[in-house]
Amino acid sequence: MQLLDLTLPSPEENLALDEALLNNAESSGRPLEVLRLWEPIEPLVVIGRASKLHEEVNVEACQSRGVRFLRRASGGAAVVTGRGCLMYAVVLSYELHPQLTALDLCHQYVMGRLQKTLAGQVPEVDFQGTCDLTLDGRKFSGNSLRCKRSHLIYHGTLLYDFDLDLIPELLRTPPRMPDYREHRPHESFVTNVPIPREMIRQQLIEAWETTGPMLDWPSELTAQLVAEKYTNPEWTSMR
């Protein structure tokens, strides 16, 4: 597995790069696995592929604060990210991991690996719901995936020093909640994991056993997706 530790200048480019990595793997004709790490500089709201924008996001608050909101290519609900939230994405091959075609096994495989490596630093880290990592029942990592013919991408957030007050300000109460949330509001449901950024980064690199840097990342495909999709208002507001 290759490592791509790269944050691009704009939110659109960063979301497009995740999708480009999956599409690039699909078109390669061989197993092409990569771990990508990045972190936004400014607050950003990211909604899921099927999310209803105004149902999940306080658009007026975002506009008032100048916070961007964009739609990603994978499923799941809206998240708030920014400085203090490390983002990761892992592209995995079905040829190398045929069991991952079963979604429950896929969640267990990725989340179990993340839980195990972070629990080495904070033993109380738990895996709850479909794809959440928690600490004392409070969520610090939300995740989603998109599956294609030969590869999938699994990506998510890792809150370690994030301004948690932004979450209830910018997001509405989600339309779907895991049972363990027990209808708690954002204020009593989310938390930061007390692990330094560089330690989280190093733990992820070791957990996925990366073999070296990805030097030929799909820059042209990323630019194409930015132009055709991620800067297109119709993509973000389509629902």
Rank of each mutant, 00 (worst) to 15 (best):
W235L: 05
R197M: 09
Y109D: 02
L118T: 08
P43H: 05
G212P: 05
E234Q: 15
P40K: 00
A227N: 14
M177I: 15
E169A: 15
D216P: 15
D132G: 04
A77I: 03
L221S: 08
S188T: 14
N232Q: 11
E56I: 05
S93I: 09
V122H: 07
D126K: 09
E124P: 13
S237Y: 06
Q99N: 11
Y94A: 07
L35G: 04
C131D: 12
D136F: 13
Q108K: 12
E220V: 12
P11F: 04
R113S: 07
S64W: 00
G212W: 00
T236F: 03
E206Y: 00
D132C: 06
A61L: 04
V80C: 06
E60R: 10
E19G: 00
M111Y: 00
S27Q: 14
R30S: 08
P31I: 06
E19N: 12
T211D: 07
P31E: 12
A16G: 07
N58P: 09
T130G: 13
I205G: 04
K52Q: 13
E13A: 14
S144T: 05
T130Q: 14
A16N: 09
E220T: 11
A25M: 03
T117V: 15
S10K: 10
E234R: 14
G76S: 04
E234W: 08
A119R: 15
G156A: 13
Q2G: 03
L22V: 03
R149Y: 02
T117P: 06
T210W: 01
A207K: 03
E220G: 09
P218Y: 08
E19P: 00
P98M: 14
P98N: 10
N58R: 09
T231H: 10
V57S: 02
S51T: 13
G75Y: 04
V122T: 15
H186I: 04
E206L: 08
L221G: 04
L166P: 03
S27D: 11
M238N: 14
P178I: 12
S219V: 13
T210H: 05
D126A: 15
P168I: 13
G48N: 00
P233G: 09
K229R: 15
T101E: 01
M111K: 12
L8R: 07
E12H: 09
L35V: 07
L22M: 11
D161C: 10
I41Y: 08
H97F: 14
I153F: 05
I200C: 02
L8T: 09
A207H: 00
L215A: 14
P98S: 12
T211F: 02
H186V: 08
V80P: 02
Y180E: 01
C62W: 05
R149M: 08
C147A: 04
L105N: 07
S27F: 00
A207M: 05
N14W: 03
P11V: 07
L32D: 03
H186F: 03
S219K: 14
R113L: 07
R72P: 03
T101M: 08
I153S: 11
L204F: 14
N192S: 09
P123M: 13
E169T: 15
Q224I: 03
G66Y: 01
K139W: 02
L15I: 15
L164P: 06
R49T: 05
G129D: 06
H54W: 02
L135I: 14
A102L: 01
P196G: 09
R149G: 02
E39T: 06
V59R: 11
F140A: 04
C106T: 13
K116D: 11
